[in-house]
């Protein structure tokens, strides 16, 4: 659906997007994740044909967006950052204006507008002036506008900003439902959002894509990312020594006394964090040691790193690379 080939966008002072290439397949929901200023919005604008790349080419559905801009735009529904709207218009007026602008034939216009208002929950505010609407309604109106011409590709730039938790859930579900029919590309700096919606995540920093995969795999790719937490009552030094000898364990760290509240009984309860090789499960071995030594064991769990850890690690280290290089 989207093919981006070595795209660079240079502004007077800096490269906002630096030699990016990727492909997005039809029906995928893809998220671009990155700190503020990573080049997400510029990339969305490039995809939406608002900007032209300094170098490289962008294809939407096989069409070069620079040469066949109008045909590409008919396939795109674009929701810019902050959902810009005309504050003096009414909701109905605005939708009808946008429908006309997007070339929806007169006969189908009313029908499409009704569908969009129901889909995006705008029925109650159809006569209201946009300037008086809350941020959430504005966001939904802009979303309705981006969907009104039944695009094949939906480009959303920070679609959840300014929404309350209920609305976020509603919009999330809406995007999830749409994702079955459309291809969706969204830019966000919220990890939870990317994790909840996207099948594939690109992490951006300083105009480059620093990682791309499914949220789960991305988390799994980090080196030394698997750790096991064990709570064992036994002489701390001896426990640590024994655990270190388990094959597959790289580090043993005492992470403080046992969890509070449950600490009655032995004063020897300790909590250990074991860093281990990915792909090995050391839990049976840990249990074996505890059983053999007669140390009570009351927690043994695998901790998987969250996307957040990956994000912080990637964007922080790339940032250092940039400043030193």
């Amino acid at each position: 659906m989207i093919k981006v080939e070595h795209v660079t966008k240079r502004f007077a002072s800096a490269k906002a997007v630096d030699d990016i290439s990727f492909e997005v397949l039809r029906g995928e929901i893809v998220g671009f994740l990155g700190p503020n200023g990573a080049g997400k919005t510029t990339l969305m604008r490039l995809l939406a044909t608002y900007l032209a790349p300094t170098q490289g080419r962008v294809f939407i559905d096989g069409l070069d967006v620079f040469l066949h801009s109008l045909d590409a735009r008919r396939r795109i529904g674009y929701l810019p950052e902050n959902a810009p709207l005309y504050p003096e218009m009414r909701v109905d007026e605005y939708l009808s204006f946008r429908a006309k602008l997007k070339g929806i034939p007169r006969r189908k216009r009313r029908e499409r507008m009704e569908e969009m208002k129901v889909l995006c929950g705008l029925k109650d505010v159809e006569r209201r002036i946009i300037g008086q609407l809350s941020k959430g309604f504005c966001q939904r109106l802009a979303l309705a506008d981006s969907l009104i011409h039944s695009p094949e590709l939906l480009i959303l730039d920070e679609p959840m900003i300014g929404l309350d938790p209920n609305q976020i859930r509603a919009v999330r579900e809406l995007i999830g439902a749409l994702g079955r029919r459309f291809t969706v590309v969204l830019a966000t700096h919220s990890l939870a959002e990317a994790e909840a919606i996207c099948q594939r995540v690109f992490i951006m920093n300083h105009g480059r894509i620093v990682a791309s995969d499914s949220p789960e795999h991305l988390a799994g790719q980090l080196q030394g990312n698997v750790s096991v937490v064990a709570e064992i009552a036994g002489p701390p030094e001896e426990v640590a020594e024994r655990l270190r000898c388990v094959s597959g364990v790289l580090t043993v760290r005492l992470v403080g006394p046992a969890t509070s509240g449950l600490g009655r009984g032995s004063a020897l309860w300790r909590r250990y964090q074991l860093g281990c090789h990915p792909g090995t499960d050391i839990r049976p071995a840990v249990f074996g040691i505890a059983a053999a030594q007669g140390w009570p064991l009351r927690e043994l769990s695998l901790e998987v790193f969250e996307l957040e850890d990956v994000f912080i690690k990637l964007t922080a280290s790339a940032g250092r690379g940039q400043t030193s290089g």
């Binding site: 608002y50 735009r73 008919r74 810019p80 810009p84 709207l85 005309y86 946008r98 602008l101 506008d145």
Partner: peptide, 14 residues
């Protein structure tokens, strides 16, 4: 200023 230009110029009109 308001950003609606972006909406306008990404619609399928020249």
């Amino acid at each position: 200023r308001t950003g609606t230009l972006e909406m306008l110029l990404t619609a399928p009109v020249t």
